[in-house]
Simulated assay, not measured.
Amino acid sequence: MMFDFLQPLSDDLVIDIHRVSNQALGKKVILHNHQETPVLEEDTIAIIGVLDNRGLNSVNTLEDLDEIRLQFYNLFPGNWNTNIYDLGDIIAGSTIEDTYYVVKTVCAELIKKRIIPIIIGGSQDISYAMYRAYDNLDQMVNLVAVDGKFDFENGQNSELADSYLSKMIVDEPNNLFNYCNIGYQTYYNSQEEIDLIEKLYFDAYRLGEVSHNTTIAEPVFRDADIVSIDMRSVKSSASGNKKPFVPNGFNGKEICILARYSGISDKVSSFGVFNHNNSKEESVLISQVIWYFIEGYHYRSKEYPIGTRENFIKYIVPIEDEELVFYKSNYSERWWIEIPFTNSSNKLKRNTLLPCSNEDYILATQQEIPNRWWKAQRKNSI
């Protein structure tokens, strides 16, 4: 049973949560406590804490996530009609691999029930365990990381939180179809890492690009299965996290916009927020990031994958030796582009339509092939 791996919320925390306003989230969320184990329904959301940050330190220093929960449950919900559960915490295992196994097992069970796990974790290497939860789902996986670094490091002294992506690429079974980084800062990444992103046909957007125009990230989240947010991608003046001090990064508004894009995506089935210092200041922002993800979830349009084309306008753009086929939704006015399907693997059939933007269509009419289309086509043909 999944609940065998989950530590219920403490009685003291439950008492504090019940003190919030009758209209606040604390009175709306179904809590896993020592008196009651919730009965889970499909098409819902489950919040889970992971009390393990050994990916940042050799010794685990994460004791609880109570402050994040208290900040979140004092917020007021939007016009939400989906059950939200707080399933408690996964405690640190004897080894980090033990923690990975439990996170993988719990997430896999939730995803199969169409319940979206929101992981408020310790270190970002927990994303690797979330990725492994998809092993038995017979699909390729797209990961989007909001992060100032690519987390490819493989040096002897590298922290797990800075090297988990290498494990995803190397370890079997290899189900990673695409990785996209949102907000990388060039001086935190070696040229070899930047070159590797290109060689693997992965996507990356610099901090300045996204800060200047956050809408360029929306199609990327629309094609993601897992979204992993590194709180060190937020500048310290916005997060309150001074260890380490981050002079440049997203501000509070931008990180909440990206969380909302994640929630709106019909495809995102797991979401995590990592590498925080558990301070009260940062907990305020994390609670709002979670709020915006759930707000976005309630505005999902269920347009993707596209089952019928009758509510879409089809555009065909001749360019060089290709015909680029675009679809625009009459409902949301969002865009998709068709990727020529040349691989016989059943796992890749879902990737024949790639979310894109109106700007991509305009570029195509000017005889410029969208970069993400080119990369996706190359990966589909491998």
Rank of each mutant, 00 (worst) to 15 (best):
Y292Q: 15
L160M: 07
S344C: 04
S344Q: 10
K375A: 03
I255R: 00
Y201E: 14
A92Q: 09
P305C: 12
N181T: 10
G249A: 05
N53Y: 01
S239R: 00
D360V: 05
R206H: 15
R300A: 10
A46Q: 02
I264G: 06
I339S: 10
Y187R: 14
I264L: 07
S239C: 05
M231H: 03
L75S: 10
K375G: 06
M140T: 07
A145P: 03
Q288E: 12
F3N: 13
N346C: 06
D162A: 13
A133S: 13
I68P: 03
S237N: 14
L62A: 03
S262E: 05
Y184F: 15
F3I: 08
R222F: 12
S236G: 08
G121E: 04
V141S: 02
Y201I: 06
L354I: 02
D151K: 01
A376P: 06
S127A: 14
G26Y: 08
A204Y: 14
Y73D: 02
I382E: 15
Y131W: 04
L324C: 10
S21G: 01
L87P: 07
K280N: 09
R54Y: 13
A376I: 08
S94Q: 13
N79Y: 01
S329F: 06
N178H: 10
D225V: 01
V144M: 04
A364E: 05
E67Q: 09
L40F: 13
T105G: 06
R232L: 15
E323V: 12
D16H: 05
R372W: 12
H276V: 00
I47W: 11
L51K: 02
S329C: 08
L258G: 04
Q139R: 12
G26I: 00
E67L: 07
I48F: 06
R132Y: 03
P355L: 00
A161S: 15
N178A: 10
K349V: 03
W80R: 02
